[in-house]
């Protein structure tokens, strides 16, 4: 800790993380940090269960309509899916690095890593829209009653698209929520709020971002790769 504070000339105004005081109902800052992490892990459990519903529906309809689902995944370009997977994996790495940078008081790299993560998030959404949602919807590959693709091989293809849009759509919503959290963290890190004594929000937002990545890691093979 002392090496970190050595950056400062004596008498300089301390950064905000240095004067961080835990909230009064906690005995120690360590307790507060542990609690925040436990809380976020519990919340991630709920997210896993939420997506569990989608995966369960996927499994059941795949069993009910195997041809429609095999055919459905052939509409998706696995290369686009792979690029998006790589984009998200990079973002997961940079968000993990941003936590490390906060712990080591590397303020520049904390912000830089957060910005790279956010660029990846934006890239993911742009790729998803321009290469998948927009062309597919314009061809009539839409869910349920909106389905109007004239060359469908199978009468149950609307269900496939229903699962596809529900799964990737709710995932995309989580990309937005995660990016929103990270933007908030970025804004606050410009104010010097995060550092070795206070990086709780960086860590918990990072955990949330990892979940966004994790869900995609499951969606990608289920939707794109299984034929």
């Amino acid at each position: 800790m002392s090496t970190i504070n050595a950056h400062h000339t004596p008498g300089a105004k301390p950064m905000r993380w240095e004067t961080y005081k835990h909230e009064h109902h906690w005995r120690t800052a360590a307790d507060e940090f542990d609690a925040a992490k436990l809380g976020m892990w519990l919340f991630l459990t709920t997210e896993v269960l939420l997506f569990g519903g989608i995966f369960c529906a996927y499994a059941i309809f795949r069993m009910m309509y195997p041809e429609a689902f095999t055919n459905g995944s052939s509409y998706l370009d696995w290369r686009i899916g792979l690029i998006n997977t790589i984009v998200l994996l990079i973002s997961s790495f940079t968000v993990a690095m941003s936590v490390r940078c906060a712990q080591l008081n590397q303020q520049f790299w904390l912000k830089a890593n957060l910005i790279i993560t956010l660029i990846c998030a934006a890239l993911f959404v742009v790729i998803k829209l321009t290469f998948e949602y927009i062309p597919k919807l314009s061809q009539g590959k839409a869910p349920g009653t909106w389905f109007s693709y004239p060359y469908a091989h199978h009468p149950e293809e609307p269900i496939w698209w229903g699962i596809y849009y529900a799964g990737t759509g709710i995932h995309a919503l989580h990309v937005f929520i995660g990016a929103g959290l990270l933007i908030w963290v970025l804004v606050r890190s410009f104010k010097g709020i995060y550092g070795p004594k206070n990086y709780t929000m960086v860590e918990t937002s990072g955990l949330y971002w990892h979940l966004v990545d994790l869900v995609w890691i499951f969606l990608f093979p289920l939707l794109y790769l299984i034929h």
């Binding site: 269960l49 939420l50 997506f51 569990g52 989608i54 349920g144 229903g162 699962i163 849009y165």
Partner: peptide, 27 residues
């Protein structure tokens, strides 16, 4: 969370008729 996803899908079902719970669409 499980009722969350269920009700969310039901809202999608009502707004967009995605068919997951609708037998007339194969759900």
């Amino acid at each position: 969370p499980v009722i969350g996803i269920t009700l969310l899908l039901l809202v999608f079902e009502r707004l967009f008729r995605i068919g997951i719970f609708d037998p007339s669409l194969g759900g």
